[in-house]
Each structure stands twice: as structure tokens, then as C-alpha cells.
Design a protein around this nucleic acid. Structure first.
Lengths: 171, 171
DNA sequence: TCTATTGTCTTGAATGATTCAAGTATCTAG
DNA sequence: CTAGATACTTGAATCATTCAAGACAATAGA
């Protein structure tokens, strides 16, 4: 869990005092990618943002805020809950991460991969799993709605029991 | 807003002191239907449950807890928030009403009509509108999931801007 | 490299929907 | 009509999320 700081690594930027820390020489690859992503999105590059973005990518799946914060703290040494929320909101706004909020659960996040997938939610354990859309790019978008409705997204959520919980469901 | 009580009306039940109030002789039709529905569902018939069920049906659309309580209070004269939640949970459990919870909004309820429809959600005003499924009974249920996953429902949510909000969206 | 400006982070408190708990009132079977 | 079970009321608690003010850091410009 190598800690890192905002300006470190291959970042070509006004401030170019490379190796300030001296100990994070071999860690930075994913962090630098995160920094590049942030710049592309016109966002300020901060330790917290890099840590959160990297945490989501490395955790995989659909972690919640607490899990993301926990992972990000390993890299930053301390990340406030508020900052976690702030960063997640910003990252979601610019489309770097995707927020999925399921009935009665807290928000969950995942790295945006632009592959138009949907979600399976286990009613028992609450786990969320990606499901590729078999119908195509925009699945059920052929809704019978008047033209006056602007539809920009169709989200499909499958409900059921996952393999681990399905056996226990018998009763 | 005629108030009513549990045993009133055409209810054939142990307690048969009809006309206790004497003023709600012509109102009871929807309430009695509610009472019948509750009994069919093996639930105890209470003023609060009848009022909530009737409120949801008469309100139409997708009212939230507060709206339902407000309407139900007109009939009961006073319905606690807790009771509203309790009743809604029970009614949902037995399938008399359907709960729809959308990202970041409070829960909304609608009368269950068993017609397999989906929802359009306006990103701006949060309004929810029913959308009939064009593909058929079980729309996108052909998910590419391993057999070990038990899928029992596929919910499609369309996101966009409703007619009232769409014009304001132009920036 | 240094400084100013702007935006972000931290801390602590507030919000709001929902739920828990204890006591009272009501429903239903007998 | 009574007993027992269940539901309702009141009041407090929970939990994710947000608001607000001050401390701090990142970027642009000198």
C-alpha cells in the first residue's frame, strides 16, 4: 500500500519536482494513469481523486462508499468521508465512474467501461453482477412513449438469487 | 372525505353493528373493496390498511409515503407515519401494491395491476410514468447469465426528460 | 521558482427517509 | 362477549448523505 502524492510520477506539469518522496519510485503506474484520466476530464489532480479512482478500478465489482474509502485510505493515509463523497460525485459527473443505486441499498460505484451492460441484483445478499446486454447496444429503448419524452438511457435490472444464495432459498 | 371504520359497510363479519356512524352510508364502496382485498390476502382488516390501499388506488400515479399518508388521513382522521410505513410494507409483501424506489428518491408506491409495465423517470422533476413493455410479458429476461443464477424479475427503467421538463433542458 | 487565486479537503453538525421499541388499542376466533 | 394475537401510536434511534466554515493544496501567471 504505497502512499503517493499529487505531483509524483511521470506527470508533466508546471510543478515538476520529481521524486519528492523518494520511496514511491516503482509504484506509480496506476496512479499516473488516474492522474492522466483526471486531466483529460479537465479536473484538478489531487491525491484523493487519484486514490478514489484507482481504488474503484482495483477493487472491481461494485463497491460502496465505505469500501472505496477504505481502499483509498491505504494510499492516502487518511481520506475523509466527505471527500470520498465529493470525489465520487465529481467522477460520476464527468463519466469516469458509474453510480448504481439499488432499492434500499447505499450507492455503489464501478469504473465506467462504456460497454452498455446491465445489472443482476441478488435479493438475498444484495450483490450486484454485470450482465451483458444480449439484444444489442440500446436494448429495450423502443419504449412506447410519446415523442415528447426524451429518453436518453434504459437501465435493465435483473432480480433474483445468486448461486451462493439460491440453495438457501429453498424453504 | 368521509371517514370510515373497519367494520362498516357491507362487511360480513363477526362484528355486525352496521350503521354505527350513520353518516357514511353512501361512501363505502371503495373501502369495502379494499376490505375484501385485504381478507383475500389473509390480512387483518383495519381502518388504516383500507385507507392506505384506497388512497394509493385513488391517487393514481406513483405517490410517495407522505402523499399516501396525507390522503389516508382524510379518511381515518389521523394516521401515524409509522403505521403508514407498516401498512405499505405489508401491502407490498402480499403483492397488493408495488414499491418503486429510484436512485436518490424516497420510495414510491402504486397499485399492483399485474400488467408487467416498466417506468420512465424524469431526471429533472423526478416524476415516474408507466411504460408498457413492447417486447412482451417478460422483456429482456434473456440475460446472458449462468444457469446458477435464478432470475425472477427484469425491471427496465427509462431515464430522460418528460414533456414538461424537456423544453427547459435546452441550455 | 514564487505567489495569488481558485478550488478541494477536513471537521463537525444537520438533514431526512426509514426503522426500532414500548405501551395502548383493535381485530378476530371461539 | 372474552381472550389472545396483532396492529397502531408515540417517541427516539439509525444510517447514508449533505451542508457549512475554515484550513489546505493545485494550477496559472509573474
Amino acid at each position: 500500500m504505497a502512499k503517493f502524492r499529487a505531483g509524483s510520477g511521470l506527470v508533466r506539469q508546471g510543478t515538476h519536482r520529481a521524486g519528492t518522496a523518494g520511496k514511491d519510485r516503482d509504484a506509480p503506474e496506476p496512479m499516473d494513469r488516474a492522474a492522466a484520466r483526471l486531466r483529460e476530464a479537465q479536473l484538478r489532480v489531487t491525491v484523493q481523486r487519484m486514490a478514489v479512482l484507482t481504488a474503484i478500478e482495483e477493487l472491481g465489482g461494485h463497491p460502496d462508499v465505505e469500501a472505496i474509502r477504505g481502499r483509498a485510505q491505504e494510499a492516502t493515509g487518511g481520506l475523509s468521508l466527505q471527500a470520498t463523497y465529493n470525489v465520487l460525485r465529481v467522477l460520476t459527473e464527468v463519466g469516469l465512474v458509474r453510480c448504481t443505486q439499488v432499492t434500499g441499498q447505499q450507492a455503489r460505484y464501478e469504473a465506467e467501461r462504456h460497454n452498455n451492460h446491465h445489472h443482476f441484483v441478488c435479493r438475498l445478499c444484495g450483490d450486484i453482477i454485470d450482465v451483458d446486454c444480449v439484444i444489442g447496444e440500446a436494448p429495450c429503448l423502443v419504449a412506447e412513449l410519446p415523442e415528447s419524452y426524451r429518453v436518453d438511457e434504459a437501465a435493465v435490472t435483473y432480480w433474483g438469487a445468486c448461486p451462493r444464495c439460491a440453495p438457501a432459498e429453498h424453504g
